[in-house]
Nucleic acid binder design. Structure first.
Lengths: 218, 218
DNA sequence: TCCCCGAATTTGTGATCACGCTGACGTATG
DNA sequence: CATACGTCAGCGTGATCACAAATTCGGGGA
């Protein structure tokens, strides 16, 4: 009866290089790796139970996205950002994120705002528990949940590469200043969303982004 | 006498995967490949005289940058953009490029403007000769020459990935409408630069970008 | 004339290996 | 005791191969 046979391709059998890529990507974005940390092909291969070939492809992909840095000799490390670069990346965030938020505003119904609120609660819990990785994860998820509504996949993709570049450094920030209170601007974002106030939303995003990264300056 | 022996590493001996990457990148960005064109590992390997391994790395890197599309079965092709995606990429350009131009404005001295003018002349010649690849190349070089002065490598890097995604489509545009006159806004850009007028410069960039891509809509 | 199915070819994937360079440690020298 | 040098384990690079999935194209049936 014309059965649609999908053997290995579609269902849940991603190639090895893709598994490795996704795993490392999360580790980088969530700040599980410290800045300047070196990664080796054989080490990653062993960690994921694959050979050097898929590990190499995953690393090549991540360096192409700026998540990792390639030294002149081919060594791969997590990036160590200087102040200029941090500031530039923060400015890119403050350029893209208000735009994405504004685009999402029209499509942001109540269920979305509620979901963001619960993510924000998880974020506050992570702060209370002093869990840096969980803090970064929920913080990014808060933002991404909103931006997904913007229906602008290319712009969101660009933004994620910026997040990726900031990942290790953000973790270093967190452990340095050990914040004990939730980011204050998330509430402003939620209020602007509920009020449907575009200008306030853009402003709240801009301050949330720049404020959070201002403390990163060495 | 302590001769500095640099054998293979530094001087001018880039790895094979890097040569392949750079070659393909230029082909894509300059529109030498038509949208939807398929690329094979063995074919590229043969074209560049290398094995599948470096070819695979180059393709992986380019797909990570959005220059190429990866099908579900692992086949690699140049992207075929729909109208929504074209419009989104154009909006990203009109977000980033005025910002980069504005940052470059302070540092744009006369020699830079002269150089841009001569690139613009080459652009006009390419139009007269009906040379699509050269037209796209000089057009991008005109913009990049300005943006390099912005001293914002991350933002320029992001923009280049956008250019990369538009490459094959821009070529298709060119052959469809066969423009015979130079883009009018390049003159406005040069005038704004000379006048040091930030607002006019931003506006000129925005219209140049959106105007050029408006005709792309199917 | 059109559609469907199966064989053959082509494709991406991943493992393995040899090679040459890199970077760090330990030793010898001042 | 500090410094320079030589050694060596470990690294990335690239070629090759086996394998399985996918695409293509032809022939046969409706």
């Amino acid at each position: 009866m014309n059965e649609v046979l999908r053997r290995q391709t579609n269902p849940a059998n991603p190639p090895a290089h893709d598994r490795v890529y996704r795993g490392l990507r999360l580790q980088v974005m969530h700040g599980e790796l410290t800045p300047g940390q070196a990664l080796t092909l054989r080490g990653i291969g062993k960690q994921y139970g694959v050979s050097m070939t898929p590990a190499r492809e995953a690393l090549r992909r991540l360096t192409a996205e700026g998540a990792l840095t390639l030294s002149a000799s081919g060594r791969v490390t997590t990036p160590e950002l200087n102040n200029d670069r941090i500031e530039e990346l923060a400015q890119i965030r403050s350029l893209l994120e208000p735009e994405l938020a504004s685009r999402a505003l029209r499509r942001a119904h109540l269920a979305l705002i509620d979901r963001m609120e619960s993510i924000n609660d998880a974020n506050a819990r992570a702060i209370h528990l002093q869990d840096p990785v969980e803090y970064i994860r929920t913080n990014l998820e808060f933002h991404r949940t909103l931006y997904l509504r913007a229906q602008s996949p290319a712009m969101l993709g660009l933004l994620e590469t910026v997040w990726l570049q900031l990942g290790p450094t953000m973790r270093a920030l967190y452990t340095r200043l050990r914040r004990t209170t939730a980011p204050p601007h998330h509430r402003l974002i939620l209020e602007a969303l509920r009020a449907g106030d575009d200008a306030a939303l853009r402003l709240a995003l801009r301050t949330d982004v720049t404020q959070g990264l201002r403390h990163l300056q060495v």
